[in-house]
Write a protein that binds this DNA or RNA. Structure first.
Lengths: 195, 195
DNA sequence: AGACTTTTTTTACAACGTGTCGGATAATCA
DNA sequence: TGATTATCCGACACGTTGTAAAAAAAGTCT
């Protein structure tokens, strides 16, 4: 996860923040979130503990800001893909997202796959809610007697959860394949039994 | 969430644990999980802090045990419903689950709806994975070129997430209605656009 | 290069949370 | 009632937190 800023920032703060973020990700790979302290993060980052507080109020604040950055990167990853591949059969936006996640697998495995880190889940959920909301065809829902909000809950949760499982299982399928699977799943047929 | 035990337990430990669990739920309603300390739990429960450690190793351990109890209660809630209502059109097991959640709304709102508490999410996910795994019709998946594990990820995540949103939004629909919605959603028609 | 600015480091501090003693007190059991 | 068990109380060592002031280091600018 890189930091994208317009105004030139002192390379020292850039370096420090990157070291801190890398350290946090490393620690999340190694231990449960509640075992992670400012002390550990700073030590791992070879940064003085006091310096941490010059950048973040606390660990929660640090994660909030990282989640913000994640959202921005995802947005750009999704829109960029649309510009490149004008056509593609399946959902191009989704493909862009999946490729972005695959490219940053280490990061996403930690913040999505491992337990904890609900902030990141929330942000991702918001993204999917928006996306699903646009894709939902309201008239078809009414015909079938399905509430729109329920359909949005359903679709966004399915998307987020499927991707989470995909990441958790070390991405056994390519982004292209998974995007295709989504297309099939959302196109729907009878594939679940009622009981 | 009650404690169900066979061997007769000293009423004092029963009382203490119940007070501690109630206190935890109360605190979760009031503040972020990371602000909750053993100190606060004990004080709120009008229990000595040392006594806490006579029952749980730490807060995480307490939540783990509460999650275990939750799983047991959900299991019984689902199987009981099957015995009562032999038939019911929609998914009876699911209906039993939703009614159980509605009956313990305060608890589930806190552990599912609010941020944090990934343990409970994990346990619930496991339950749904099992349930979906049984309900999946494999031959239909093969016909459509859908991987079974992907379908299970998708279905269980959709279920868990929909219920979570339902709880988060203070259950605007009755368990019966939501169960019906699930039936419709899993029966599927075209209701999402690909792009 | 040197002067100026900003960041990082160092050391220190008080407040709080954690987990664990041993012994006193109170509730439960038989 | 006497024995057992749970809870309470005071206390301890240790780690974490967040903040402060001043020195040292790194970056910026002309």
């Amino acid at each position: 996860m890189q930091e994208a800023e317009k105004t030139k920032i002192d390379p020292r703060v850039l370096r420090t923040r990157q070291l801190l973020k890398n350290a946090l990700v490393e620690l999340l790979e190694e231990m449960e979130p509640d075992k992670i302290t400012v002390n550990r993060i700073a030590t791992r980052a070879t940064i003085n503990r006091v310096t941490f507080y010059l950048h973040y109020r606390d660990i929660q604040d640090m994660m909030d800001k990282m989640a913000d950055e994640m959202v921005v990167e995802i947005q750009t990853a999704m829109t960029k893909k649309v510009e490149e591949k004008k056509t593609g059969g399946d959902d191009v936006i989704l493909l862009g997202l999946l490729e972005h996640i695959a490219a940053n697998a280490r990061f996403y495995k930690v913040i999505i796959g491992s337990r904890g880190l609900p902030i990141f889940h929330e942000r991702l959920r918001d993204i999917f809610v928006k996306k699903i909301n646009d894709g939902v065809t309201k008239h078809l829902l009414e015909e079938k007697g399905i509430q729109q909000d329920v359909a949005v809950w359903f679709g966004s949760a399915a998307m987020l959860g499927t991707i989470a499982s995909w990441v958790r299982n070390d991405m056994p399928y390519s982004p292209q394949f998974l995007a295709r699977q989504f297309a099939l799943l959302f196109r729907r047929e009878d594939m679940y039994e009622t009981d």
